[in-house]
Design a protein around this nucleic acid. Sequence first.
DNA 1: TAGGCCATCTGGTCCT
DNA 2: AGGACCAGATGGCCTA
Length: 337
Amino acid sequence: MLTLPFDESVVMTESQLCRKYVRENEEQKTAKKVESCAKQIVSHGKNIKRTPEEETEQEEEEEDKDEEDENGLPRRRGPRKKKMTKIRIERIKIRRVEANARERGRMHGLNDALDNLRKVVPCYSKTQKLSKIETLRLAKNYIWALSEILRIGKRPDLLTFVQNLCKGLSQPTTNLVAGCLQLNARSFLMGQSGEAVHHSRSPYNSIYPPYHSPELSTPPGHGSLDNSKTGKPYNYCNAYESFYESTSPECTSPQFEGPLSPPSMNYNGIFSLKQEEALDYGKNYNYGMHYCAVPGRGPLGQSSMFRLPTDSHFPYDFHLRSQSLAMQDELNAVFHN
DNA sequence: TAGGCCATCTGGTCCT
DNA sequence: AGGACCAGATGGCCTA
């Protein structure tokens, strides 16, 4: 019946520790409540000089004798309604208090699991926590994006990756993700014609040449999505489909076509790929969360981005061989402020 | 001050 | 009977 989670104590965060402290206080309060209820029952039993068991038996005997209902009609068959005596009410109260404590604990477990989920999705921040719903949405997008990478066998560019992550997320969360990646969130905006607007000033620009889209470039310093001017909410779903000609994660789950190994988690809760070659390139290169996206050399929005031949040799294309571990650290720092 | 988010309480349902 | 799970209600806190 009880399903215990795996031992998460080793990854307990400050917030979890704080919550644990609060929890312990609550447990003490609950214990006091139960104790007081129990005392009431005992005192009640003393007053009437009968034990609760005797009380119950007595009640049942009385109920057996009570063959007529309040209208004087013969008693119907079926489960009898037990009288709500004081002692029974107190018992119900105790059960309720205990049930509340269990429910609280259950919700705490759920929140702990959510905290752990927050740690393995991009943009984990101790100071600015994602809400529950946003965490779930981002996690879903993240899984979907990684699945797409596995399915296609090639890295998308950073901007595309972030766009996928942000589908369906609220504007503040989108801004947060953009901020984490030091991307200008405006670069997510698509032109009216559905053309991608991109000019990202990302950490990767220092390694790879930026996209060449001078006609679409946006002045720097606009760090937030601003849909108020158009009056229309930005629809990432459309953007996505214009890129990939595929269903968006908002619509369907990815179709796995091959026996790909799912991403595994390392001790940090970071996704990494199960691949033997990784050893050749040093120390389990992490992907995904520590996504070391490299902008494609072509223009963003190039629909061939995810349309590689399906017989491409995954995971060989997958290695980020040219990336240094130092760069990985830098990117990790970006994702985990 | 309204709205979002959250924790908690509560009663109902299902299952063991 | 009792525990797990769920969803609705409620009130507190925070922020734009």
